[in-house]
Amino acid sequence: MGLTNTPSDLLPGTLELLILKALVRGSKHGYGIVEHLRLASDDVLTVGESALYPALQRLLQNDCVKAEWGTSENNRRARYYTLTAAGRRQLAAEQTEFDRMVGAIQRVLKTS
């Protein structure tokens, strides 16, 4: 895997969707999110920081997540992100949309 999975490598908006999904089980810091995505995808998805942090900022701006300073496992100050109610709604909506889109793509791929 390359260093950075820039948003253009995925479908637009997919990274945000994945981040939201990663936060469903509780708040995580940036590294936690990356690790969660890596483990959950069997090492297929490695999200680069240069894509992750702007995406997190966008989510903050849209009130989908909220951030709080806390202490990480290695005793450093880390920012923990938590899903908000708006974030949950957004996740549900985008998940449906994503399923629809992926289904459509698969149908296209099968017919050809």
């Binding site: 810091h29 940036g30 590294y31 990356v34 920081e49 942090y53 701006q61 990480s72 496992e73 290695n74 450093r76 100050r77 880390a78 920012r79």
Partner: peptide, 29 residues
């Protein structure tokens, strides 16, 4: 909020740097 951000820009940048540095330290561990 963008305007507010501009005013508190240096503080915001420092936060981000710290956050990313934590990220790196976790990876190093």
């Amino acid at each position: 909020r963008g305007l507010l951000h501009l005013l508190r820009r240096s503080r915001h940048d420092a936060d981000l740097r710290e956050e990313i540095e934590t990220h790196r330290a976790l990876r190093q561990a």
